[in-house]
C-alpha cells in the first residue's frame, strides 16, 4: 500500500494532532490494491451514472460530455460498477491483460 510519511516531530504536530488539509487521503493511491479493473464500453454507456453513485471509492467523476471518468489511482477493483451497470457496458478485466 502507498505509504505516506508520518514522521513529524512533536513540536510540528498540529494542535491536538489535528489534520488541517482536507481530503489529504488522496495521497494514498489505493488503486494498487486492485487485481481487476473495470473497462467501460462507451458505445453501450447511456450516461446514467450508476457507476458513479454506486462506487464506494469515488472513482468515477462526471464530465461535461456526460460520460463518467474512471480514476485508476483509487479504484480497488470491487466490481460493483460492472454488476450494477444497467446496460452491461462495464466489464472487469484482469490487471496486466
Amino acid at each position: 500500500m502507498a505509504k505516506v510519511d508520518a514522521l513529524v516531530g512533536w513540536r510540528n504536530l498540529e494542535i491536538g494532532c489535528a489534520i488541517t488539509e482536507p481530503g489529504s487521503s488522496r495521497k494514498l493511491k489505493t488503486g494498487d490494491w486492485r487485481s481487476q479493473r473495470p473497462v467501460t464500453d462507451r458505445d453501450k454507456c447511456i450516461k446514467c451514472g450508476m457507476c458513479w453513485i454506486y462506487c464506494p471509492d469515488i472513482v468515477y467523476s462526471p464530465t461535461k460530455s456526460g460520460y463518467f471518468k474512471w480514476d485508476g489511482n483509487y479504484c480497488k477493483g470491487c466490481g460493483i460498477c460492472a454488476r450494477e451497470c444497467p446496460k452491461d457496458a462495464i466489464t472487469m478485466v484482469m490487471e496486466g491483460e
Binding site: P22, G23, S24, S25, R26, K27, L28, K29, T30, W33, P56, D57, I58, V59, D71, N73, Y74, K76, G77, C78, G79, I80
Partner: peptide, 10 residues
C-alpha cells in the same frame, strides 16, 4: 475523499 482505506466493495 478518495484514498480512504475501506475494504474492497464496502
Amino acid at each position: 475523499a478518495q484514498g480512504h482505506r475501506a475494504c474492497q466493495g464496502c
